[in-house]
C-alpha cells in the first residue's frame, strides 16, 4: 500500500551500536525465516506428492492425476471468482461509506462491526451457511431454475437442500468482506486532503470527487486488498466443506446439488480416511493450490506494476 517516503539515505550509515546490530539481526532473521518456511512447505508438497504422478493412479474412479485435480482446481477458482464478484463491490462501498459519507460515530461503529466479522471462525460461518443460508436460498434456487432455466447458469433441477456453489460463494464473500473492507478503508483514508478539496472546489459533486480523487488514488490498494481476500477465499476449507454438496465435476450451474468441489475442502473431507496412493494424490492437489495461489499473486503484482500511475500513487 502507501509506502512511507524513504527519508533516510541508505548510504549514510551510523556506527553500529549493539542495539542496532541486535535489531538488524532479529529483523533479518524474521525476513529470512518466512522464505525458509515457504521453501520448506514447497519441498514437503513436492516430495510427498511425487507418488501421485505415477502410472497406477486410481482415486475416486479417475485414472490419472490431471483428471482428478482438474475439477477441483476449477471449483476452487470458480467459487472464489463468484465470491470476489460479490464481495469486492460491497467492500468498496462500505469502505467509502465509512470514510466519506457516514457520520463519525456511525463510521466507527460500522468499522468495529466489520472487524468483528473478521474474527468469526470459519466453522461458525460453515454452520450458518449449511443450516440457515442454504435453507433460506432454497426457494430462490427453485424459482431460478423453474423460470430462468434457459440460462445455462440455472439449468437443470434445483438443489433440494440449497447447498449449492452459490450458497458457498455467498458464505465466502461474507468471510472475505472484512479483509477487503478494512484495507480499502485505510487506503481511502490516505487520500490527500488537498486532492479532495481541490476537486470539490472545482465544483465536483461528492461522487465526482470520489471518482476523480479517491478511487484512482486507492486503486492499487483495492487490488492488494482484493488479492488478500482472494487468498483467503482460495484456501478456505472448513466453511466450504460444511456448506457445499460436492461432486467430481466441472459445472457452471449455480443452483444444482451437483457442484464442483474445491481443493482445500476436498482435502479436509478425504484426508482422514485416505491411505496409500490417495494421500499423495491429496497432497499433490495441495501443491496445485499452492501454485494457483502463487500465480494469482504474481498476476496481481504484474497488473500493479504495469500501471505506474495507480501502482505508484503517492
Amino acid at each position: 500500500m502507501s509506502s512511507a517516503p524513504a527519508a533516510a539515505s541508505p548510504k549514510l550509515r551510523a556506527k553500529g551500536r549493539p542495539a542496532d546490530i541486535i535489531f538488524q539481526g532479529i529483523s533479518t532473521f524474521a525476513g529470512i525465516s518466512i522464505l525458509v518456511m515457504l521453501g520448506l512447505v514447497a519441498i514437503f508438497l513436492v516430495v510427498q506428492s511425487i507418488p501421485a504422478f505415477g502410472p497406477d493412479f486410481d482415486v475416486k474412479g479417475t485414472s490419472n492425476f490431471l483428471e482428478y485435480v482438474g475439477p477441483l482446481a476449477f471449483g476452487t477458482v470458480w467459487a472464489s471468482f463468484l465470491a470476489m464478484i460479490m464481495a469486492v463491490p460491497v467492500a468498496i462501498g462500505i469502505a467509502l461509506f465509512i470514510t466519506h459519507f457516514a457520520p463519525r460515530k456511525l463510521a466507527s461503529t460500522i468499522g468495529f462491526v466489520i472487524d468483528l466479522l473478521a474474527a468469526v471462525p470459519s466453522v461458525v460461518f460453515g454452520l450458518w451457511g449449511a443450516n440457515v443460508l442454504a435453507g433460506f436460498m432454497k426457494p430462490a434456487y427453485a424459482w431460478l431454475s423453474d423460470n430462468l432455466g434457459f440460462i445455462p447458469l440455472f439449468a437443470g433441477t434445483a438443489s433440494g437442500t440449497g447447498r449449492t456453489i452459490l450458497t458457498a460463494s455467498i458464505v465466502l464473500a461474507v468471510m472475505v468482506l472484512p479483509i477487503i473492507t478494512a484495507l480499502s478503508r485505510e487506503v481511502f483514508l490516505q487520500t490527500p486532503r488537498l486532492h479532495e478539496e481541490a476537486s470539490l472546489a472545482l465544483g465536483a459533486t461528492r461522487w465526482e470527487m470520489i471518482k476523480m480523487a479517491v478511487l484512482p488514488f486507492g486503486a492499487s490498494g483495492i487490488v492488494s486488498a482484493s488479492i488478500l481476500g482472494l487468498g483467503r477465499a482460495l484456501g478456505e476449507t472448513m466453511a466450504i466443506a460444511m456448506v457445499l454438496s460436492p461432486s467430481l465435476v466441472v459445472s457452471f450451474i449455480l443452483t444444482s446439488g451437483t457442484n464442483p468441489s474445491t481443493i482445500a475442502s476436498n482435502i479436509a473431507l478425504s484426508f482422514p480416511e485416505a491411505h496409500g496412493n490417495e494421500v499423495s494424490a491429496l497432497i499433490a492437489t495441495g501443491l496445485v493450490l499452492f501454485i494457483i495461489t502463487i500465480l494469482v499473486n504474481g498476476l496481481a503484482r504484474w497488473l500493479l506494476g504495469r500501471n505506474p500511475r495507480t501502482g505508484g500513487a503517492k
Partner: peptide, 23 residues
C-alpha cells in the same frame, strides 16, 4: 466414496442428519 454423481453431499453424519432434518 459415494460413487455416483447424482444427489447431494453433506459432511459427516451430522451434516447428513442436518440436511435431511432441515429439508
Amino acid at each position: 466414496v459415494f460413487p455416483y454423481e447424482g444427489g447431494e453431499g453433506a459432511q459427516q453424519t451430522s451434516g447428513v442428519i442436518d440436511a435431511v432434518t432441515n429439508n
